[in-house]
Design a protein around this nucleic acid. Structure first.
Length: 241
DNA sequence: ATTACTACCTGACAGC
DNA sequence: TGCTGTCAGGTAGTAA
């Protein structure tokens, strides 16, 4: 599941525990996040490369000193701690690579004007466009729905009609609040110390079909947009004609 | 160039 | 108990 706030939560915990430790003789110098990708940069090459890229897919986890189980794909033994990578559905990837990331800009670091530029000439519906990691990276299905609700945008609105400044403000505010709460735990997400996130308690539309909209009390609706479960308030997020 | 759809993989859950 | 069908937060590949 991990989207930007969950990956940022993982990065912060791992920085506290792993920076400066060695793996196969190479020192871990930095842990960065770009969108949903985690980047581990080492001082020396391991298998010929100095960067390990983790993309966790839907169910990938990175746990410190956890007991490996049947879903464990890799164990990285550092000086003092072991980093255990597991992935039930095997959509994630752990790859040694010095290649530039094949990803659009991180959405938290993206100025509103640049978001506007990227949306202005697109006629596609805003939701699937925001899920396209080549356009902007970091949003997944949960936070897209939460951000579009916050910005009062219907997920099928053509991208060129979007008020990008308002959307950018909503994205920043939602993602920062989610990071502060340690991400969302629906079923699978736990940080490297095994702690769940708390932001699911603040979800306003995701997973709340049939419940009242927190702004106007209209029942939240669940529909399909681009084959993805999509949650919205039909009153706060009208589709303009 | 852009968009739409499918497949990948496992587990949880509902219904029978 | 156990079978079947459906669904899940991501993304790569293919085809229109």
């Amino acid at each position: 599941m991990p989207e930007l706030p969950e990956v940022e939560t993982i990065a912060r915990v791992l920085r506290q525990h792993l920076l400066g430790q060695r793996l196969d003789g190479a020192r871990l110098n930095a842990i960065a996040r770009h969108g949903k990708a985690l980047l581990f940069d080492f001082s020396g090459a391991i298998t010929g490369r100095e960067r390990l890229v983790a993309r966790l897919g839907m169910t990938g986890t990175l746990r410190l000193n956890a007991a490996p189980d049947k879903h464990t794909q890799a164990v990285l033994q550092f000086d003092r701690d072991a980093l255990v990578y597991s992935d039930i559905r095997k959509f994630g990837r752990l790859i040694w690579s010095n290649e530039p990331l094949h990803l659009g800009p991180d959405i938290l670091a993206l100025p509103a004007a640049e978001l506007a530029r990227r949306l202005s000439h697109r006629e596609r519906a805003i939701k699937p466009l925001l899920l396209d990691q080549m356009l902007v990276s970091g949003l997944g299905n949960i936070y897209v729905d939460e951000c579009l609700f916050a910005a009062r945008i219907h997920p099928l609105t053509p991208a060129s009609q979007i008020d990008a400044a308002a959307l950018s403000q909503a994205v920043t505010s939602i993602l920062e609040a989610a990071i502060a709460a340690g991400g969302s735990t629906i079923s699978d997400f736990y940080d490297p110390l095994g702690r769940p996130g708390r932001y699911q308690e603040q979800h306003r539309v995701y997973g709340r079909a049939g419940q009242p909209c927190p702004r106007c009390r209209t029942a939240i609706v669940r529909t399909l947009v681009a084959q993805r479960g999509t949650h919205l308030c039909p009153s706060c997020q009208p589709l303009a004609q």
